[in-house]
């Protein structure tokens, strides 16, 4: 990424200096290109973009007769199954849009020659990453908007009205999506070929979703599995989103009986930094001499 500092005077070899600020300018230009390509790839749209909506619809429909969650002893109150699983789907969407999307996308671009070609062009690495990050932001925001609209309109799930809840949502989203994107970029260097990318990435994100309280109530899991899940960021993101979308009284269902948003923030931040370091260390346009 240090390559972006190229604005230097022309040398005697006849190589003209490049215009200033092109790293950012080209990064912005690439966002449009990346978003366009994202929505043209059918399986990407289904398995990443629409997946949380599909899963929410299944949960809300399949369990529509199983009664509410968190009802009072007299059977009153509580929220629908769909409402209970909504925060998990929000967290899953953030994970898919970052980790699954970028890890498979970049692994494919590595194996199909796209990165080699870009590496031979004067596109700065930073512009490439800005393009990917922008694509993740745009698509995940659209995904979450769609998810919330479907939840509200089709399944009549109450959304929070307090501004401070949405403020919490905003920082959780930002920290979550950046962490998820950098981890996706880092994970993209694991698959050895584009064909194996989905086989490597999908099991990882799927297992994480099952053990992190997305599809199953977290506290129902055995203690040791909860401990393992707590090592990974998704558990914390899902917990944070529950604090936004579930009634205050549901905090008692958490492991410690509280939302622990400070612990959520610390865990996400650690993973964000780990991800950034991993990207910086592992990303190459090509593996030289492979």
């Amino acid at each position: 990424m240090s390559e972006q500092t190229v604005a230097r005077p022309a040398v005697s070899t006849g190589i003209p200096a490049l215009s200033r600020g092109r790293g950012i300018r080209l990064g912005l230009k690439r966002i449009g290109y990346e978003v366009r390509v994202y929505f043209r790839v059918g399986d990407q749209v289904f398995f990443t973009f629409l997946f949380p909506v599909v899963m929410l619809s299944i949960f809300a429909t399949a369990f529509s007769t199983s009664g509410n969650v968190g009802t009072n002893p007299d059977g009153s109150g509580g929220i629908s199954q769909g409402a209970y699983f909504l925060p998990g789907m929000v967290a899953a969407g953030i994970l898919l849009s970052g980790v699954q999307n970028l890890a498979t996308d970049i692994a494919m671009e590595k194996s199909d020659g796209t990165l080699k070609r870009l590496g031979g062009s004067p596109l700065p690495v930073i512009s490439y990453f800005l393009g990917k990050m922008g694509q993740v932001f745009v698509t995940s925001l659209a995904q979450l908007a769609l998810l919330l609209v479907v939840a509200r309109v089709l399944f009549s799930i109450e959304l929070p009205t307090e501004p401070e809840k949405w403020l919490t949502f905003a920082w959780l989203y930002l920290l979550g999506i950046v962490t998820s994107a950098v981890l996706g970029i880092a994970l993209s260097s694991v698959p050895r070929s584009g064909k194996s990318a989905t086989a490597v990435v999908i099991p990882i994100v799927l297992v994480l979703q099952f053990i992190s309280g997305v599809y199953l109530m977290f506290t129902m899991l055995p203690e040791w599995l909860q401990n393992i899940a707590s090592l990974f960021p998704l558990k914390w993101l899902a917990q944070g989103m529950r604090s936004v979308f579930l009634p205050e009284s549901f905090a008692t269902l958490e492991r410690t009986g509280a939302w622990d948003l400070d612990v959520v923030a610390v865990n996400l931040l650690i993973w964000c930094i780990v991800g950034l370091v991993l990207c910086r260390v592992t990303f190459r346009w090509i593996r030289k001499d492979s």
């Binding site: 190229v6 230097r8 190589i15 003209p16 200096a17 490049l18 031979g120 062009s121 004067p122 700065p124």
Partner: peptide, 12 residues
């Protein structure tokens, strides 16, 4: 560097 790459055309 990138300024050098900008002077090359590469057909792999």
């Amino acid at each position: 560097d990138i300024a050098w790459k900008a002077q090359l055309g590469i057909v792999l």
